[in-house]
Amino acid sequence: MANHYCLDPFDPYTQSEVLVVFDGSYPALRLLSVIDKDEADILAELVDEQRRDLIREIGAFHRPDLAAA
């Protein structure tokens, strides 16, 4: 398992971060939990597009060549 801080999908001002715990490597990442600033796991509240955004954000960090895509 690994973890990465990403932008909070529920923060419209992109000022907060969430801690994403995941398994695997890009593009086959599996999100295990998404912990918000209140230490709550919000993974179940995320829609598919928000989950994909987190996976892309992690991929762009770990594989900088993806950030240009």
Rank of each mutant, 00 (worst) to 15 (best):
V34F: 12
S16W: 11
P9M: 09
K37C: 13
D48S: 07
L54Q: 04
F10R: 05
L19E: 14
A2L: 11
R56F: 13
D41F: 12
V21F: 08
L29I: 08
G24N: 04
Q50I: 09
P64W: 09
E45A: 15
R56G: 08
Q15K: 12
D65F: 06
E49F: 08
G24I: 02
A40L: 14
G59H: 10
S33P: 08
D48H: 00
E49G: 05
D8K: 03
K37H: 13
Y13W: 04
D53P: 04
V47I: 12
A44Q: 15
H4C: 05
V47R: 13
Y5E: 12
N3P: 00
D11W: 09
E49T: 13
E39G: 10
R63G: 01
R30K: 15
L19I: 15
D8I: 04
F61H: 03
I55M: 00
H4Q: 11
D65S: 15
L19P: 06
L54I: 07
A69G: 03
Y26L: 01
I35K: 01
V20C: 03
M1F: 02
D53C: 13
A60T: 11
L32E: 06
R51A: 07
E17K: 11
R30V: 15
E39P: 02
R51W: 02
L54P: 01
F61D: 01
V20L: 02
R30Y: 03
G59L: 05
D36T: 12
H4T: 06
A68I: 11
L54A: 05
H62D: 02
Y26E: 06
S33H: 06
A67T: 00
V47S: 14
F22S: 01
E39S: 15
G59T: 08
T14A: 10
D23E: 15
F22L: 01
D65A: 12
I58F: 08
L43R: 00
I35Y: 07
L31I: 08
N3I: 04
R51E: 01
A44M: 09
V21N: 06
Y13A: 05
V34D: 09
L31C: 10
F10H: 05
S25G: 08
P9S: 08
E39D: 15
G24Q: 01
D11C: 10
I55E: 04
D48Q: 03
D48L: 04
L29H: 00
P12L: 09
S16C: 12
D53I: 07
H4G: 06
F10T: 03
V20I: 07
H62Y: 07
R30T: 05
F22G: 02
F61L: 09
E39L: 11
L29C: 11
L7S: 03
R56A: 08
Q50H: 13
V34Y: 07
R30H: 07
G59A: 09
L19Y: 06
A28Q: 14
V21R: 05
Y13D: 12
A69P: 01
R52H: 10
E49N: 12
S33Q: 14
V21P: 00
F22I: 03
R51Q: 14
L7A: 00
T14I: 07
I55P: 03
Y5N: 11
D53E: 13
Q15L: 13
R51T: 02
R30D: 05
D36M: 13
S33Y: 10
L19S: 14
F10N: 07
A40P: 01
F10L: 10
H62C: 00
D11Y: 05
R30E: 11
D65Q: 12
